[in-house]
Design a protein around this nucleic acid. Sequence first.
RNA 1: GGGGACGUAGUGUAGUGGUUUAACAUGCGGCCCUGUCAAGGCCGAGAUCGCGGGUUCGAAUCCCGUCGUCCCCGCCA
Length: 590
Amino acid sequence: MYKTHTCGEINEDHLGQTVVLAGWVNRRRDHGGVTFIDLRDRFGIVQIVANPEICPDVHKALSVVRSEWVIQVEGIVQKRPEGMANPHLSTGKIEVSVKHVNILNPSKTPPIYINKEEDADENIRLKYRYLDLRRERMRKNLILRHNVVKFIRDYLDERGFLEIETPILFKTTPEGARDYLVPSRVHPGEFYALPQSPQQLKQLLMVAGIERYFQIARCFRDEDQRGDRQPEFTQLDLEMSFVEREDIIQLAEDLFTQLVNKIVPEKKLFASPWPRFTYTEVMNRFGKDNPDIRFGLELVDISELVEKCGFKVFENIIADGGNVRGINAKGLGNYSRKQIEELTEYAREFGAKGLAYLAITTDGKEKSSFAKFLTPELVEKIKTRMNACPGDMLLFIAGEKDFVLESLGRLREHLGSILKLRNKDTLAFCWVVDFPFVTWNKDENRWDPSHHLFTSPMPEDIPLLDIDPGKARGQQYDLVLNGHEVGGGSIRIHDRHLQEKVFELIGLDMGVARERFGHMLEAFEYGTPPHGGIAPGIDRICMILAGEPNIREVIAFPKNQSARDVMVNAPSPAEPAQLEELHIKIIDNK
RNA sequence: GGGGACGUAGUGUAGUGGUUUAACAUGCGGCCCUGUCAAGGCCGAGAUCGCGGGUUCGAAUCCCGUCGUCCCCGCCA
């Protein structure tokens, strides 16, 4: 070993000892005489000191050293002089007086600052990711992620789960997200697909009698990026046999509650046990199936209050079966016309025709865009319904119900940001249950599964599949944290006939279904236990636990917005010979 | 596929009503300095203002195009 101790572990217990350390020069302070170097390794920083009167050779050797050089030093741990301790360093009471120096590797001036929390251009950070990862922020995030995964493995191991790997080279399933395809050399014109999730495989492990399975599974989806989406990401994939919805929910809730307590004790759970909402309820209250419940600003239906108010816009929409709903934007009552216009503009981006408002200024006066239709009685009714106080701003959107909910939901999120209502130290987990089993796809004129093809409907709703599929609920549950969907799961179908019925319902031709999912149908005929599971997203959860705004910050080597790895420059063209072996011809679309 | 923001020394920013010899900080180089910890002081080098074209006497600044990055919509069973 190049070192006897890590930089971070040296303390007063080592006083007088000779230690050998190795690491990076975090910072150098040259006083002409005495020179200090903050030596950094993964475990921390320790100050090393060279005095020309004591060791002139060492002092000279260290004078050429610069930031990020890798050096090895041998020296004696000594107490710092009175009043010279640094309370910001765990090693701040001591320093290492250097006797020998060995320069292991010099460094060019780095393109980004390692020793500063200055936000560098993301493109440069990604290009020099190995330097970016040296930074405190990234190091902490990697450690957090390790701790999260370690906790999960230990927790599940203690409860009898087996961690089992499943193939990365799998089979294409055009349902769902776009697949990443891998051409087969051996079978011309045929392709593997990278798994979007190990869904089918984990179910087949249940057929195999594993009963309790998990995997820290890499998943691949060829869709466009977002702040919380990467083309490859990691799920805690988990499946159990002989369980009902409640069992999985309890397990996941306990797992993550304990995980938070142990790994991020400084964070506070918003509520425990976690709130549970039905799909209908979250949509009505928050306008979003993954609501951030750290703040209120819930949506309120005032349709029946205004259906005969005389305001034609509202009246006509309600007469056509639409809705008028609002949000009480607490504390915005004194917003100027211009500021309201900005909110309106925001709502328009999502298709709202307009934004009606009723402001109650702090001195109790009312201002409204539809004032002339408002009788004092109606104003009182609306204020009561929406719990309005002086200083509040009531905002309304009218239109078709789903549209009103969605656009108000977005406005609510926006207001949450404007009003700074998201406490970053609060973790608001919640469950969303009772999703519709299928949703109508207007474009394709068919039913689509709300979750995935293997989700079981609620047993009592099975008869509805024949009569009114839109009314049936699925045994699906989503795990939501601070406004992000961080996991979803379901009780699965374990009966061939029900599975075929579902295929039929969503318009999957039986021949196609057998070709794509024949292995599942067949497996269900050999003693399949009832089973279900969940798949929490590790990256998103780590992102939120770390307080990071983007999923890239918790992934060592992420792709950029356009799905490119700018460090190695992937994807990149393949050699003609490779393509030929794979029976692939590139078509120039330009 | 669509919308928005951005692109100026190694890095982070300023300058955008047309005259700048492109500013500041930090980093880098040199000198001074024996107790700092974002050390300090002095001096210096470092930018064809993303790229291409146009308007103009004159463009970092205005116009068009293009490339790149980020955010959002669509998409994400």
